[in-house]
Design a protein around this nucleic acid. Structure first.
Length: 817
RNA sequence: GCUGGGGUGGCGGAAUUGGUAGACGCGAUGGACUCAAAAUCCAUUGUCCGCAAGGAUGUGAGAGUUCGAGUCUCUCCCUCAGCACCA
């Protein structure tokens, strides 16, 4: 047995933690061989944006949870690659720079130092040689290169569009960055603005982005969020001539079952066909005035979604192709120009249409009814809007009269198509990704405008288009980036004809930087390619990705899209970047969201200083299920402090004891039970219950005083993912020369788990009245008669006859009397 | 409004997926050690009745299925998160 290097001394966490962090760094314990790995496992966590005053508890929580998983995989024989970096380009960091009045370039150097120091103090098993920063010219060179690849493929285009404008950040935002009508970053109410902007054609990939979700092992809530965002619906498109004009308009309907109910048409106020439609209409100007008002209202405060509708009659009618006659065309506030065809046929079976028609006295004609006669009468009298296609019964068309609409949806579609009334079509809610930003701190979009040659991409050999170091980096609010006033940047010669030309001055969205960072980790010094294809084929797709659910439709959608494009241009041979993704929960403090105004923000540095990283890590993982998130209470930490101190003391005791300690059967059974449970729990990210079973094992080891060195070593291994520093120290203190992280995860022995004595709950009428302990091998009859004769049972059975006996082997016997 | 979580002691949270509810931890109470305190250790700790033995009751509310329901079904309430005029 090893002899006492490890005296019973105080557990000096700060010394021990620093010691091991140094050893891991100098020995490069966690840097896998990216070229020669046999058993690669890419363990990725979402890299932070260094936007605020350092890492916060939420980062710490996410990163620890991911690191526990990585350390576990490493001990299970995987070559784990766990890189980290900084998503330091973009609006997040720039807003922080503006706030404290420091140039982002300077700030990036400061936060780099600070973040990496903090990240080291957590003690995660990062591959430090592989870090990347998105603002490094050697990084954004390839971000720009990616833009050019999309441009070449026809997936990047510029168009004038009504876009989301944040009046505080003074830039446009992608739809995904508008949360409930507000800016994702600053919470300002977003306005609409007509601007010429660069877009990525993510809509070309809508179908693939949706269907691939099926095969991904991702948190279900994230998949659902993506499905909803992509918003596929299939339906019919009807073409209708407009009376007294030569126009033909198309309308899209996903709920076409009740098409015989259509009595009017709604067109979006900003629809491109509207001016044409109004040509020759008498009160054209008055209508356009009203339309302008509606658009202004929609842009400024928006219409509330609860049936607040507004509209104006165009004076035009369609001649309905399906035989509903001449239907008036109304301009309606709720009609959206960029969904479907921007024009809808309306009926009594849609809540908004119904409310609109009621408000303006438009005729309605119900054809879909509930089964209940009384309700049917109400629908007939237009007392309320009935829109339930799954249970509603149709009265028209006559061919389908009396049938439940939902059941014959396909038949109706076939019928309409066959009669030449409509064609089938699929529509998506997903819009193209707006990537222009009128800001300073981002990769300039690598495009040059030449009077003669038009839009010219920057030749790849000229990348990166370096971001000039300008003094005044503040956003201008003019719709142009601050770069627009930097003459030396703007004025270039055209790469094609050499004539004077101008650069694009917008920079690209931060989410483009982060859409491909995990490729760059693999090869962060490569000057000739964005990454090494060889390494990518070995390490990608990512085996496990852990991050926040708030990126369900931002980062996680964009990065899938970019990966699909990379696949299409032959860079890689897979479509999906992350095999497995798990969203962690949110940490709150004492039952409330953390916020500076409440003064309940957790500063991880303070806790690490006071208790050590192991304690903070273990407490964070213990306080709640990782995927659910939970309540951080200072009071709860002492439990973990005591736990680790007891581990320390037990370790010291074992080391100083003679080898007389027995290998008690019960202890062995518990050990193997614990191995089984901890292994399964970590696989499922049920870290809280894994830790609690470690506590149970420790309690037993202390009490029984029967821990052998081997048993304790197994315990230390199980503890290592959560509290790596103390575990490493104890491991080496026991005389082991190896580094614990490179040791093998304990395996449980099935034979040791077998229970020889079983406890059976004895119930009478379903109420537990006694517990019987029996040999596991006893036969059913013997157990039952034994149970019947127990005094606690006998008194309940007295004077009654047992009608039935339910016997669940090894668990329960229930006498029904 | 729609979608998806969730509601269990004083608190954070367990429960083998229909089988002894409250694991583990915090807190609390009592005790040991100490001149004393801290730390540590031991015991108790859902609620109600009872000196006790024991009993009753108990997982947001109400019904139901079952020998047996925190777990399944229906109705309702509350709460968190995401989406929100998507035809």
């Amino acid at each position: 047995m090893a002899t006492g290097k490890l005296k019973i001394k105080k557990y000096d966490f700060s010394k021990i933690e620093r010691k091991w962090q140094k050893i891991w760094a100098s020995q490069k314990t966690h840097q896998p061989n990216l070229d020669g790995s046999e058993n690669p496992f890419y363990n990725l966590m979402m890299f932070p944006y260094p936007s605020a005053e350092g890492l916060h508890a939420g980062n710490m929580y996410a990163f620890t949870g991911a690191d526990v998983y990585g350390r576990f995989q490493r001990m299970n024989g995987k070559d784990v690659f766990e890189p980290i970096g900084l998503d330091g380009f973009g609006i997040h960091s720039e807003n922080y720079a503006l706030k404290i009045g420091t140039h982002p370039l300077k700030l990036s150097k400061i936060s780099e130092k600070r973040y990496y120091k903090q990240l080291k103090s957590i003690g995660n098993s990062y591959a430090w040689d592989s870090k990347v920063e998105t603002y490094d010219p050697e990084y954004y060179k390839w971000t720009q290169w990616l833009f050019l690849q999309l441009y070449k493929k026809g997936l990047a285009y510029k168009k004038k569009a009504s876009v989301n404008w944040c009046p505080k950040c003074l830039t446009v935002l992608a739809d995904e960055q508008v949360i409930g009508g507000e800016c994702e970053r600053c919470g300002s109410k977003v306005e609409k603005k007509e601007l010429e902007q660069w877009f990525f054609k993510i809509t070309d990939y809508a179908e693939k982005l949706l269907s691939n979700l099926e095969s991904l092992d991702w948190s279900e809530r994230v998949k659902i969020a993506q499905r909803n965002w992509i918003g596929k619906s299939s339906g019919l498109v009807f073409s209708s001539p407009v009376k007294d004009t030569d126009l033909v308009i198309e309308t899209f309907s996903a709920h076409f079952e009740a098409y015989c109910a259509d009595t009017f048409v709604a067109i979006a106020p900003d629809h491109y066909l509207l001016p044409k439609l109004l040509d020759g209409v008498q009160n054209r100007d008055a209508i356009l005035k009203k339309v302008a008002d509606m658009l202004k209202k929609r842009g400024d405060q928006g219409y509330s979604t609860t049936n607040e509708v507004e509209g104006v009659f165009t004076g035009r009618y369609i001649i309905d192709p399906v035989g509903n006659g001449e239907l008036p065309i109304w301009i309606a506030s709720y009609a959206l120009a960029d969904y479907g065809t921007g024009i809808v046929k309306c009926s009594a079976h849609d809540e908004r249409d119904f409310a609109f028609a009621k408000k303006y006295g438009i005729k309605l004609k119900p054809v879909l009814f509930p089964e209940d006669p009384e309700q049917k009468k109400k629908v007939m009298n237009l007392e309320y809007c009935f829109s339930d296609m799954t249970s509603g019964i149709l009265s028209e068309p006559l061919e389908f009269s009396g049938r439940v609409a939902g059941e014959i949806r396909e038949a109706i579609a076939d019928y309409a198509v066959a009669k030449g009334l409509a064609k089938r079509e699929t529509k998506f809610k997903l819009r193209d990704w707006l990537i222009s930003r009128q800001r300073y701190w981002g990769p300039p979009i690598p495009i040059i405008y030449c009077d003669k040659c038009g839009t010219v991409p920057v030749p790849e050999k000229d990348l990166p288009v370096k971001l000039p170091n300008v003094k005044d980096f503040r956003p201008t609010g003019t719709g142009h980036s601050p770069l627009a006033s930097v003459k030396s940047f703007v004025n270039v010669s055209c790469p094609v004809c050499k004539a004077p030309a101008q650069r694009e001055t917008d920079v690209s969205d931060t989410f483009l930087d982060s859409a491909w960072y995990f490729f760059r980790y693999l090869d962060n010094e490569n000057k000739n390619e964005p990454f090494s294809k060889l390494r990518a084929s070995k390490w990608l797709p990512v085996d496990m990705y852990i991050g926040g659910a708030e990126h369900s439709v931002l980062h996680l959608l964009y990065t899938r899209f970019i990966t699909m494009v990379m696949n299409d241009i032959g860079l890689i041979d897979f479509e999906e970047p992350f095999k497995k993704f798990r969203a962690h929960g949110l940490i709150i403090k004492d039952g409330a969201k953390m916020s500076k105004s409440k003064g309940n923000v957790i500063n991880p540095d303070e806790y690490i200083k006071r208790f050590g990283s192991d304690v903070l890590r273990t407490y964070l993982m213990f306080l709640a299920p990782f995927e659910q998130g939970g309540d951080f209470q200072d009071g709860g930490i002492v439990g973990v402090v005591r736990f680790l101190e007891r581990v320390w003391r037990l370790g010291s005791r074992i080391n100083n004891q003679e080898s007389k300690i027995s290998n008690d059967v019960n202890t062995q059974k518990l050990l193997h039970k614990t191995i089984k449970k901890v292994t399964k729990d970590i696989e499922n990210l049920s870290y809280n219950t894994a830790i609690s079973s470690l506590m149970i094992l420790l309690n037993a080891l202390e009490k029984e005083d029967s821990a052998s060195k081997q048993t304790f070593e197994s315990f230390i291994k199980l503890l290592n993912p959560f509290a790596p520093h103390i575990s490493h120290e104890l491991w080496s203190g026991l005389g082991n020369k190896s580094v614990l992280d490179q040791e093998e995860w304990p395996k449980f022995d099935k034979n040791k788990l077998e229970e020889h004595i079983v406890k059976i709950a004895i119930q009478v009428n379903g109420k537990t009245r006694a517990v019987l302990e029996m040999e596991a091998t006893s036969d059913d009859g013997a157990i039952e008669s034994e149970a019947k004769n127990m005094p606690d049972i006998k008194k309940w059975l007295e004077g009654k006859s047992v009608k039935k006996v339910i016997h669940v082997k090894g668990k329960i016997i229930n006498f029904v009397v």
